[in-house]
Simulated assay, not measured.
Amino acid sequence: MIHEVDEGLRLLLVEAGLQESGVDLVFEAPTKDWAARRNAPTVSVFLHGIREDATRRRTGTAEEHDEEGTVVGWRTPPRWFELTYLVTAWTNRPQDEHRLLSEVLRCLVRSSALPARTLTGSLAELGLTVEIEAAGSGADRQSTADVWSALGGELKAAIDLRVWAPLEGERTSAGPPVTEGLVVRAAPAQDGEGAEPGRRLRYDGASDPGEQGFAAERERQLPPGRRRRGSAAR
């Protein structure tokens, strides 16, 4: 799922015309060594945080059917995860970096979700909305200064980007449907010796149980010499 979110963000930024203007789009960590090797205007979309959104967790399973309506398996609900990216622009001049970062920000804030045309793989199959939020507020997030400190680089202007994406649930396959009746065998002993050939029950010509089915009350025959409770003796 993570690589599919990366691809969705890449397609979104490509549609904005970044690569047509000669800008490289990468998903590498903007470390000091990486910055020294850079030789072209670059936009870095660095993933540095992954955590589950527990408020969206669901339980249970859902049936999966084939074209004929037969159950072929069960799947657990998807689990949602919040992916946090650090988006930065790299050029030889701060003014150019800010201009490039403005174009990226304009592209990211146009929509609150990744367009369906940018979704691939399991994200496209699930058909769920992949929400995005650029430069939003949130006191519970990791500090940008802490991220730069971990990368070993100097603090610079960056866009904090969050994406909420579903991870496809686990699937359990169903066995083939039962097409044969129950086989009943009778044996005179518990060890099965002398068992007669089995008889397959096909339920042909079964009687109609009525509107209430087999839950309806039925008259029970008593053994000879017994009477019902509450009835007068003869």
Rank of each mutant, 00 (worst) to 15 (best):
R57W: 14
A195I: 13
R99G: 02
E170T: 15
I50D: 13
R220T: 05
R38E: 12
R106M: 13
F27C: 02
K156H: 10
R229K: 11
A40G: 04
L86A: 09
R218D: 07
T118R: 07
G138W: 13
A165Q: 04
G49C: 03
A35F: 09
L12V: 04
I50K: 09
A139P: 04
T31E: 10
E63G: 00
T120H: 08
A134S: 08
H3C: 10
Q212K: 11
A215M: 12
W164G: 00
L222H: 04
I132A: 00
D146K: 11
A139T: 10
A16M: 09
Y85F: 12
G210D: 11
P166D: 03
R110W: 03
G152P: 01
L161D: 00
L123D: 01
L222Y: 02
P176K: 15
P41M: 08
L18V: 02
A158R: 04
I50T: 13
P177A: 09
R199S: 15
H98W: 07
E193R: 05
E7S: 04
V163Y: 00
G169V: 00
T55G: 02
R229F: 09
D208L: 09
Q221G: 05
T118C: 14
V14D: 04
I50N: 10
V178T: 11
Q95Y: 08
A62N: 14
V72H: 11
G138A: 14
D140V: 07
E131L: 04
G153H: 01
A189G: 12
T31L: 05
R218L: 07
P176L: 12
E97Q: 06
S102Q: 06
Q95H: 11
E67A: 15
Q95C: 05
E211T: 12
T70R: 13
A233R: 12
P41R: 10
W90G: 00
E168D: 09
T76W: 04
A16L: 09
G230S: 08
G230N: 15
E15M: 12
F214E: 15
A29L: 03
L108K: 00
I132N: 00
L151E: 06
I50C: 07
R37N: 09
V109F: 10
E64H: 15
P30E: 01
E15G: 08
E103G: 10
T91Q: 10
D53I: 07
G136I: 08
A186S: 14
W34G: 00
R79W: 04
W90E: 02
T172I: 10
T118V: 10
S111Y: 15
E67D: 15
T42A: 07
R58C: 01
V178S: 13
E15F: 15
L12S: 08
R110C: 03
T31P: 03
E133L: 07
L155G: 02
L167N: 02
H98Q: 11
P197A: 06
L47S: 01
S143C: 14
F27K: 03
T76F: 03
P115D: 11
